[in-house]
């Protein structure tokens, strides 16, 4: 029997839309703005600057697929940055600092998961409290910005992956190779790992079942509480990793680190085709969602609209565009199904 091509699932459809729009947008930028957009380094810069955002957005996507929400991701990231910087500056061990980052992330994830899943408290409130706690702890650790002085890590920070054939020739005739930071590789690794977890692991499919219909998931024999707990744990873990990557990128701890990251991450997930109602979404989509979100800001700046308020206005407009588009696409789909 020949396997017939099935129509795209909701997840695939929304993801495809995002990827197409991103490519179209980037192509338009290359044609009309040229300059930096013609260089591969433009994308590398986007990735270098936003690797932590990609990582937290992946975590948030997992939680949203499971039908929850985690708005603590920015706070946890910032707490991890501050804790690691202070620890390393006090002659800490590099390896231990990594464990510290993961530990803080996991601890937050575990507490959130416990409260949401086993005590059945509304996730918004739990993770809001988590965000308050993380932000508060950050300022308790230090109100003043802390510069990273640990030599080992600073040495690692300066390592950059150089790709000559993706470089460009500067005005003075020198070839400047494409430069990618280590953090980007970590981010890409996170995307791939989470993608594989969601697609090929029982646990990952259980996330979708949970978000699709919680009651059904229970009746189908899924341990709903444990599954939901795991979504928050993963999100916490990724926030911890994001914190470490953030530190590697900026080399400083600051109370306002990753400010607003939670909302940017939510926006990235949504643009990438994740539904807050759960059960639909994919980290590849989220990855492109993050790129779309950050590219539009870059485009606004490059077009000469330097005033910062232009960025947020365009971001808002783009969110509006994507949200309405998705709503229309899904409701048309529902209608055609009801008829068929």
């Amino acid at each position: 029997m020949k396997t017939r091509r099935e129509p795209l699932t909701d997840t695939q459809l929304l993801m495809t839309i995002t990827i197409c729009i991103f490519i179209a947008m980037y192509a338009l930028a290359m044609i009309f703005l040229g300059g930096g957009f013609l260089r591969a380094q433009q994308i590398f810069d986007l990735l270098n600057d936003n690797a932590p955002l990609i990582i937290v957005a992946c975590g948030l996507t997992v939680v949203m697929i499971g039908g929850g929400i985690d708005i603590s991701v920015g706070g946890v990231t910032s707490l991890v940055v501050m804790s690691c910087v202070l620890y390393l500056n006090a002659d800490g061990n590099l390896f231990v600092s990594m464990l510290l980052a993961l530990g803080i992330g996991l601890a937050f994830g575990a507490v959130h998961g416990l409260l949401v899943s086993y005590l059945e408290i509304q996730p918004f409130i739990v993770t809001l409290a988590g965000m308050f706690f993380a932000r508060g702890m950050t300022t308790i650790l230090s109100v003043n910005p802390q510069k990273l002085t640990h030599e080992g890590l600073n040495a690692i920070r300066s390592i950059k992956l150089e790709i000559p054939w993706l470089g460009y020739v500067a005005k003075n005739g020198n070839l400047i190779p494409g430069r990618i930071e280590l953090g980007v590789l970590i981010a890409l690794l996170c995307v791939i790992v989470i993608f594989l977890v969601l697609k090929y692991l029982r646990l990952g499919r259980n996330f979708y079942a949970l978000g699709g219909n919680q009651q059904s998931a229970l009746m189908l024999g899924i341990n709903v509480k444990k599954t939901r707990f795991m979504t928050y744990l993963i999100s916490g873990l990724l926030s911890g990793i994001a914190g470490f990557v953030f530190m590697m990128h900026t080399g400083a701890g600051n109370a306002t680190n990753a400010a607003g990251a939670e909302m940017n991450a939510i926006a990235s997930s949504i643009i990438g085709g994740t539904l807050l109602s759960g059960g639909v979404g994919n980290v590849i989509g989220t990855f492109f969602g993050t790129l779309t979100l950050t590219t539009i800001k870059k485009i606004v700046v490059t077009s000469g609209l330097k005033d910062p308020w232009w960025q947020s206005i365009t971001t808002g407009a783009m969110l509006l565009f994507f949200i309405v588009l998705q709503s229309i696409v899904l409701s048309r789909r529902g209608k055609s199904r009801a008829k068929g």
Binding site: L115, L119, F132, F133, R135, G136, T139
Partner: peptide, 25 residues
């Protein structure tokens, strides 16, 4: 408590409140 740190303590009290009010409890 410095105004920047208030959030951390607030979070603890909030969690206590919602735990008391949670369906399971």
């Amino acid at each position: 408590v410095p105004s920047t740190d208030v959030k951390a303590y607030k979070a603890i009290v909030i969690v206590l409140l919602v735990v008391i009010g949670s369906p399971v409890v």
